[in-house]
């Protein structure tokens, strides 16, 4: 199936007036069971917390300042008769280095298998932000890019072609100015469509690096991984992590939780891993 990039936004904006839209019910933290889990990722200082607040009605502190959300914050909302749990991941520049923040974010996207991951990016600093977007797309198929701060981009007379961006990334891109609530209805619609599988995405993935030896190693290893764990959604990325000596991933292979991923299960090992990252109230 191909990605309906262009129709996406048509449907999104058409729905700004459709009855479904009136059904956004912000649930704050009062949420016990849910139908879908949404992860919110992004660089520090992209207005991620503002998006979180706009969706949940919570008032998490939003500072113009990196590293604000240090641990995971959670909230919920109801949209189109479905209940969504929203997990605000720590703001990070990358998912590769060994900081606690990056580990929490990475583990949640990999092992928590959210039904959709929304990546909030700063429209005025796109290049820097895409590094994280591309890394998230290596891990999960179910992603939406929330192109935030388009009001700032306009102020700086910057034109970002979000359709082109969506085509290049292979996932929906929704322009937003979360502080004005602009684009939030469209974002909700697109997130729900990705979560429910109405939209199928085809994320851009690196086919090669500039280093042939590394590429060959990745091919060998990812082949073995796919044989051992049929249906693993991100074999190339797992291979790259193994070649970088990632202990967490090695452990996931040893204790079998990587196998759970290939079956789409969230089993004991996975939920244990998630509790480690859980934030004390």
């Amino acid at each position: 199936m191909t990605l309906r990039t262009d129709t996406l936004h048509a449907s999104g904006s058409a729905c700004a007036t459709c009855p479904m839209n009136q059904h956004l019910e912000r649930l704050g933290v009062k949420m016990t069971n849910w139908d879908y889990v949404v992860a919110l990722a992004g660089n520090p200082n992209t207005g991620k917390s503002t998006v979180f607040n706009a969706l949940t009605g919570l008032r998490q502190h939003t500072g113009n300042w990196p590293g604000k959300t240090v641990a995971r914050a959670e909230g919920g909302f109801q949209y189109g008769n479905k209940r969504y749990k929203l997990v605000d991941l720590p703001g990070t520049y990358s998912l590769l280095a060994a900081s606690v923040d990056e580990e929490i974010a990475r583990d949640f996207i990999l092992f928590g298998q959210p039904d959709v991951t929304a990546i909030v990016v700063d429209a005025t600093r796109l290049e820097r932000n895409l590094n994280l977007v591309l890394q998230v797309l290596e891990i999960t198929n179910k992603a939406v890019v929330c192109l935030n701060l388009v009001d700032e981009a306009r102020r700086h007379k910057l034109i970002v072609d979000h359709r082109r961006l969506a085509r290049d990334l292979g996932v929906p891109v929704v322009p937003t100015a979360a502080r004005q609530n602009e684009g939030i209805p469209e974002l909700l619609q697109v997130m729900s469509e990705v979560a429910t599988g109405v939209i199928e995405t085809r994320p851009r993935r690196l086919r090669s690096t500039a280093n042939p030896a590394l590429d060959a190693a990745v091919n060998t290893l990812s082949g073995q991984l796919e044989a051992a764990f049929p249906g693993l959604p991100n074999a190339r990325w797992v291979a790259l992590r193994l070649l970088d000596g990632d202990q967490q991933i090695e452990r996931a292979i040893r204790d079998g939780s990587l196998g759970d991923l290939s079956r789409g299960d969230k089993t004991q090992a996975v939920s244990e891993r998630l509790t480690i990252a859980e934030v004390p109230a």
């Binding site: 590769l96 290049e127 591309l134 890394q135 690096t209 500039a210 590394l214 790259l240």
Partner: peptide, 10 residues
């Protein structure tokens, strides 16, 4: 190598 490839793509 990975970081370089990602940034080149970005």
């Amino acid at each position: 190598h990975l970081t370089e490839a990602l940034f080149a793509e970005a």
